[in-house]
Design a protein around this nucleic acid. Structure first.
Lengths: 207, 207
DNA sequence: GTGGTATTGTTAATTAATTAACATTGGTGT
DNA sequence: ACACCAATGTTAATTAATTAACAATACCAC
């Protein structure tokens, strides 16, 4: 199913918000309620759901459980996908933390590092393998997604290795923009940029 | 100066890329070269620079040093701005790391936590204060930007406090969307969403 | 049952962002 | 000096994303 990236992002957020609803025993939700929780408009919610072909049966809002499942059929893969974190420093461990207790189609199955203090230990719930074994482990465990949280100087080489070893998607948290072949999906997030952006708009608001 | 958020983000990236150029003794750079390093088009670079009113004197590309300064006059505040990290766990420490060695108008001057093991210690280069002292410290140190890296359950309350204590911009790394008054600039980043987005497009590419 | 209301799904309009097109200009080579 | 080239700055066109508008429909109150 062909969807705009922005819509995919929102679907992920809808799902997590909806799971929160289940927690509070809320089984139906209106578009404007869901929208308000995410600070977007109700139209946008409805439009996104239209794109994935979901309609509510009744005018009592969306069936939370049903919608969660529908979103799952759209954005999740049929069988589960294995993920690795490369570089298990502070950021890597933080990312690993987000996987905890999440039952999903995404399995964090390995981390890699060069620090002898870390390798072969379980850190933040995931085993850390030595960087030297990356080829073997990535192929053996069939890792499809790499999250890169290494120091900037290593980013480029690590990305090339990951691609060579079969990774099909990369989430890059380093400040170095990466170059990957077109068949590898690349998402980059740059913290410094976010911080500077906040600073800019704070400054502008104050003037 | 009124600028689109996307342009501000790119300006921040331009600047960092340009600083890298200085490191490699590259004093002039063409728009297409700068663009290639960031995987965008040369037109976009030129358009962004047009928006901030920069022009190169010669056709030898942009003067790297001059452009860095120009971007600085646009996106930096005149006097420096103080920043705090709330929640100095793995993610907080990772964020703190990004400030190291950066000389900029943004000063990371404090972190806050509730863990007695952490308070009153210097962690990742920044002193950690007890959460209870947040009001005093935030006012004393004139903190304008808060980076929120606490566990999700605390996010809402922490944000409200930060706003009450004078913060004008928030960067929220928790998975809980925050509600802030209109005069506070809010930027949210959700790692899980990014990961799920990568997974979605990997899946789609494989089909 | 009927009228009114609230909410949805969808098309159309608007706005934002990106890309294309191109005239302009300094530099280069002959 | 002159013709050409390479790169820029800017306007116009295109594409993407959001928002507005509204007909359709199930529920509710009576």
């Amino acid at each position: 199913m062909k969807l705009p990236g922005k819509t995919v992002e929102r679907l992920s957020e809808y799902r997590r918000t909806l799971m929160g609803c289940l927690g509070e025993k809320k089984n139906f939700i209106f578009s404007h309620d869901l929208a308000a929780r995410l600070h977007i408009t109700a139209v946008q919610v409805r439009r996104d759901l239209m794109l994935i072909g979901y309609s509510s049966v009744q005018r009592k809002g969306y069936d939370v459980k049903e919608l969660i499942e529908k979103i799952g059929t759209v954005i999740d893969s049929d069988d589960s996908m294995n993920v690795a974190i490369i570089g298990i420093g502070n950021l890597g461990r933080a990312v690993a933390g987000y996987f905890k207790g999440k039952r999903s189609k995404l399995n964090l199955v390995a981390s890699f590092d060069t620090d002898p203090q870390k390798i072969n230990k379980v850190i933040s719930g995931v085993k850390c393998y030595p960087h030297n074994d990356m080829e073997k482990i990535m192929k053996d465990l069939n890792i499809r997604i790499a999250i890169i949280t290494v120091p900037p100087d290593y980013a480029k080489d690590i990305a090339e290795e990951a691609v060579r070893f079969g990774v099909k998607g990369i989430l890059n948290f380093t400040t170095i923009p990466l170059n990957v072949p077109s068949w590898v999906f690349l998402e980059e997030y740059d913290m410094i940029t976010s911080i500077e952006k906040v600073a800019f708009f704070v400054k502008e608001n104050m003037i």
